[in-house]
């Protein structure tokens, strides 16, 4: 088992390196010169050369990459062109804000979807199944930004129960998950974020559990006198590896934040940060944010792989 984990971790390293190469290459992939924003239009050739040397753009690309990678490994992701603040700090604050709503969305979506999917599979074709399936089809079909706007119109504009946007008066420093005055700002973004994963995870849970329930060993369980609760426990345990894989992907997406949702709710998370960085052509921020999010995604997949071997003995650890 330990061997297997070590091997999976080792596999994650080249993937992460690939991610860093892509992030670094963004500077060159993006149209236009990253320096044009820094320099006045009438800058002399000497000034350009000076700036280039200062940013290290005069060196060969592989050397630039290694320098950048070396700095990134020590936590230095450069400086924002827009605000001149350290990119690492900006990303960290934004990530913290995103994690507040995405963790809540993960907990809400995963438990609700798993329970509803299992119930739907057990009462295959019954009322509960039809309700759950409709909810899940709605979840994956409705655009979530539209859903977010509808929520704002209903709960913020018409009913005036919840605030429409922002993180509250204190911003991200003043936010506390233990105080209603803060939490109420997070509710609508969390609901909006949870909608799509609820639909997707419920569908995959339903199909996985109902597939298991149709297998021969379920009859064996009943033949040896197990009650329906025990039958369902076995079914869920069998369906878990497949569902975990889907959950892992959704977890990765949610942790990355959503540009659309965070923009609608002006939630200062990674999605908002990316949006601003794109609008301002702030390449270092873009690089840093994408790098951090991609690494989170890689680590999530790694965690799911390891979890799967823990719950499914058939995945060989050799």
């Amino acid at each position: 088992m330990l061997n297997y984990i070590l091997r999976r971790v080792a596999y994650a390293i080249p993937i992460s390196l690939g991610v860093t190469i892509f992030c670094f290459a963004l500077v060159y992939l993006a149209p236009g010169d990253p320096l044009t924003r820094l320099l006045p239009d009438d800058a002399t050739a000497e000034t350009i050369a000076l700036i280039k040397a200062a940013y290290g753009f005069d060196k060969p690309i592989p050397i630039q990459y290694l320098n950048w990678l070396g700095r990134a490994l020590t936590g230095d992701l450069g400086q924002s062109i827009q605000t001149n603040r350290a990119v690492a700090d900006e990303v960290l604050i934004a990530l913290g804000n995103t994690i507040i709503i995405s963790t809540a969305a993960v907990i809400l979506a995963f438990t609700l979807a798993f329970v509803m999917g299992t119930v739907a599979a057990y009462y295959n074709g019954g009322v509960a199944d039809r309700v759950a399936t409709s909810v899940s089809v709605l979840g994956v079909s409705i655009p979530n930004y539209w859903f977010g706007i509808v929520l704002i119109i209903i709960f913020a504009v018409n009913l005036r129960w919840l605030p429409a946007t922002g993180m509250g008066p204190g911003g991200s420093e003043g936010f506390s998950i233990w105080e209603w005055s803060s939490v109420k700002f997070a509710i609508l973004p969390v609901l909006t974020m949870a909608m799509v994963p609820i639909g997707i995870i419920m569908r995959s849970t339903r199909s996985a559990v109902s597939e298991v329930l149709s297998q021969d060993f379920v009859q064996t369980l009943r033949a040896k006198g197990m009650g329906e609760a025990a039958v369902l426990r076995h079914a869920v345990r069998n369906a878990l590896p497949g569902v975990l894989a889907v959950m892992g992907l959704q977890f990765g997406y949610l942790m990355g934040g959503s540009i659309l949702i965070e923009t609608i709710f002006t939630w200062p998370g990674t999605g908002s940060l990316l949006n601003q960085a794109i609008l301002n052509r702030d390449i270092p921020v873009l690089q840093g944010t994408i790098l951090v999010l991609a690494l989170i995604f890689v680590m999530t997949n790694l965690a799911v792989d390891i979890l799967q071997t823990a719950v499914d003995p058939r995945i060989k650890r050799g």
């Binding site: 021969d216 060993f217 064996t220 719950v311």
Partner: peptide, 10 residues
């Protein structure tokens, strides 16, 4: 079929 009649993950 003893393969499918036993629960594969227990």
């Amino acid at each position: 079929e003893p393969m499918t009649a036993l629960d594969p993950v227990y």
